[in-house]
């Protein structure tokens, strides 16, 4: 985990400083003169050697700070913190909805291999994996937001119930992307479990199919889906940037895109690092859940 974060800090720093254009240029706009640019660059500390700037960036992190925004002079940390509820709700909502979609469908498909319902469920990943998330978002807006007017189509709301409602369509967009991946591996792992000796033993003891599904199949299937989620987490976090844009939510993704345009180095560095930390933490959580559910796994 530490080497990964270290590597990311270098990568982020390198990428941000390769973006052409001067922050001072953007800040001053038409008033830019070489003298003024020099002063601003000195104030922002970007006239120092890159290695010193990197060192400052890392030592700030160890002091619990991600720097101050060049543009509106707010601490990057609090800017990110303000958007944390949105990221959290989107991510949780997306994951929960995708499990709600994938789990019943996979059980349905695996319960009778080769039947019509199995064929139908198997077709879902084949079609679903090719759907662009921006398009899925726009289609959901068209269907639920404008045609039936059940859910708000943009923004985030102020109160918790409002937020839950406005988070629904973006979460569903994420879930529609994620569930084909889940269905594919869940169905396969359930078929494997249903073929296993311990299920045969359970059957021969006269235990009902419902109970076998609940006790043996479901538990193993959830373990499998947690693993699949862990593998796809970076993809998921990245696609939030896109989903936020489709639903015009002022989240971390938009903050990052705007900040790159303004050459606001501290924010771009901070947000990218934040995304990477989210990825690392979520994969850690999936590892822990995996270990808690599966007695065969021992964490070192």
């Amino acid at each position: 985990m530490i080497p990964v974060l270290f590597g990311i800090s270098i990568a982020v720093f390198a990428i941000v400083h390769s973006i052409p254009g001067d922050p001072a240029d953007v800040l001053l706009g038409q008033n830019a003169t070489p003298a003024k640019i020099k002063i601003i660059n000195h104030q922002l500390g970007i006239d120092r050697p890159l290695i010193i700037q990197y060192f400052n960036f890392v030592s700030d992190i160890f002091h619990g700070s991600l720097g101050i925004s060049f543009y509106n002079h707010e601490p990057v940390f609090s800017l990110i913190l303000a958007r944390l509820p949105m990221t959290g709700m989107l991510l949780t909502g997306g994951v929960l909805l995708s499990i709600l979609i994938a789990l019943p469908l996979s059980i349905l498909a695996a319960s009778k291999r080769g039947a019509l319902r199995d064929q139908v469920v198997r077709a879902i990943p084949i079609i679903g994996l090719g759907m662009p998330q921006v398009w899925v978002g726009v289609m959901l807006i068209l269907l639920f937001g404008l045609k039936f007017q059940i859910f708000p189509v943009s923004g985030f709301g102020d109160t918790f119930p409002e937020r839950l409602r406005s988070i629904f369509l973006p979460s569903l967009t994420i879930a529609i992307l994620l569930s084909p991946i889940l269905i594919r591996s869940l169905r396969a792992s359930m078929l494997e479990i249903l073929d296993s000796d311990y299920v045969l033993t359970a059957r021969s003891k006269g235990i009902s199919t419902a109970r076998i599904t609940r006790v043996h199949v479901l538990r193993n299937a959830i373990i499998a889906s947690v693993t699949v989620l862990g593998i796809n987490i970076a993809y998921l976090v990245g696609s939030m940037v896109v989903v936020e844009r489709v639903f015009a939510m002022a989240g971390t993704g938009s903050l990052m895109v705007d900040s790159i345009a303004r050459r606001d180095y501290p924010i771009v560095q901070g947000v990218t690092l934040y995304f990477a930390v989210v990825v690392v933490i979520v994969s850690l959580i999936t590892d822990l859940i995996h270990a808690a559910l599966d007695p065969r796994v021992v964490l070192k």
Binding site: S18, I19, A234, V241, I260
Partner: peptide, 22 residues
């Protein structure tokens, strides 16, 4: 493998958007 881990933790669209600006 450490390099691979680093790239795996790097959200793709974040990288892509930054590269577009470069």
């Amino acid at each position: 493998m450490r390099i691979v881990d680093t790239f795996l933790a790097f959200p793709f669209y974040v990288l892509a958007i930054a590269l577009v600006f470069i």
